[in-house]
Design a protein around this nucleic acid. Sequence first.
DNA 1: AAGTTAATCAACCGCTTTTTC
DNA 2: AGAAAAAGCGGTTGATTAACT
Length: 238
Amino acid sequence: MRKPCCEKEGTNKGAWSKQEDQKLIDYIKAHGEGCWRSLPKAAGLHRCGKSCRLRWINYLRPDIKRGNFEQDEEDLIIKLHALLGNRWSLIAGRLPGRTDNEVKNYWNSHIRKKLIKMGIDPNNHRLNQIIPRPNPQNDCVSAAATSSGSMSNISACTKAPIKSSREIDQRASQATSVLEDETSGSSSRDLNLDLTIAFPNPPLLVGKEMQKNIKGSFTMAREIETNLQNSPTLALFR
DNA sequence: AAGTTAATCAACCGCTTTTTC
DNA sequence: AGAAAAAGCGGTTGATTAACT
């Protein structure tokens, strides 16, 4: 049996109060991010260490960027998701000030639906067989398919005739992917997305740390390269 | 105006990975 | 080398708010 991450009894759950936030901020300002397990006690918080970590990383960190995602951020998320799948922390790592949780929520509540409306399976980024019928008022599919720019035009498609997210999910599950047929079409080839990925500027590292970091970057690079070769979405974007 | 449904997002849970001893 | 502890991650849940009937 695995030990619980912390004592369940006597720990607060649910939304954080202003006072709790302040205690956490004050403590980290004074002592830095240290051992999350012992932090709550030291900071005088009746919270699980994991909860403190999440609160700090997702909301209290001073470098957090709040507010709506910009179009270029959205484009980048789509590209990175095509490469990396649901690896939210890696994706968030390429978006300064954004957290994995935020990116994940944004994907699930916004981007995923937009892709489905466009007839793209958000799981594998392939064009589906069941494509929403062209709508004279708002022909998203054709607009997207003929675009020679980024995915920016997706935002123009928010008034597609699908009513609910349940319906969207249904379409997604019914849909059959037909990569070879669809992606070999000329319309997709027009999309010209810059997929160059630069690794984040690492902090100045020395010795062992640096070796580890370099090793990690190579592993990631290799993985991305493999994905580039195999990813249907990127065939779509090429 | 009230009730219902849908959308959003903060937080939790449990599993995996990494680090430490 | 292996076990235990700690940290990290992604999926899911639940509370709140907005939109609709």
